[in-house]
């Protein structure tokens, strides 16, 4: 009974999310995160705006953060080849640069803003700190990250086989 009450209360509280939190909830990685937890994450995020054509990061650059797209589109491409070297185009609610959170390897591709876009950025050290202090957020984010990586791997295998 207590559990159902908690769920109902969370659902009720969720209705009163600020527009900022609601935008953040749209990001696939945060879909399972509770409102209070999302507020903790919001405090660590840096909001940036990029104009169409602006470079977000270069291939080979030292990776420090993961990016969440709130609005607009970005293109992931080979260094300096946004048209013929395009790898993927990502839109709102998607994220990129997640490899930076998992290892210290340099950026594998260049990312440019395909449209004017707004991004939220989470610094690697903040992410690691969050995993240490909030175990529930940690397990949810890790699961979502694993799902996302699995989905991308499956897509790559399918495209390779086909």
């Amino acid at each position: 009974m207590l559990l159902s009450f908690t769920r109902k209360f969370k659902a009720f509280a969720g209705k009163f999310e600020t527009p900022q939190l609601a935008t953040l909830r749209g990001v696939s990685l945060f879909s399972q995160i509770a409102t209070g937890e999302l507020r903790a994450i919001r405090g660590l995020l840096h909001r940036r705006t990029y104009l169409k054509g602006e470079i977000i990061f270069d291939e080979g650059e030292e990776a420090q953060a993961i990016y969440f797209i709130l609005s607009g589109k970005v293109v992931i491409c080979r260094q300096g080849r946004p048209v013929d070297g395009a790898i993927a185009e990502l839109g709102a609610s998607q994220c990129f640069g997640e490899m930076a959170l998992l290892d210290n390897s340099p950026r594998m591709a260049q990312v440019r803003a395909a449209e004017d876009c707004t991004l939220d950025v989470l610094f690697r050290e903040d992410f690691l700190g969050l995993l240490q202090t909030h175990s529930q957020i940690a397990s949810k984010l890790s699961l979502e990250l694993a799902r996302m990586m699995g989905k991308r791997l499956r897509q790559n295998i399918n495209s390779y086989v086909l």
């Binding site: 405090g43 660590l44 995020l45 840096h46 909001r47 940036r48 990029y50 602006e54 470079i55 977000i56 990061f57 650059e61 030292e62 420090q64 953060a65 950025v121 610094f123 050290e125 903040d126």
Partner: peptide
């Protein structure tokens, strides 16, 4: 503390942003 850091980072241009984050750390 974290909000103060975010506030300072807001003044940094996009090109130098990741490097400045690392500087703060």
């Amino acid at each position: 503390g974290t909000q103060l850091r975010t506030f300072i980072c807001e003044t940094v241009p996009n090109a130098y942003f990741e490097k400045s984050l690392y500087l703060m750390y």
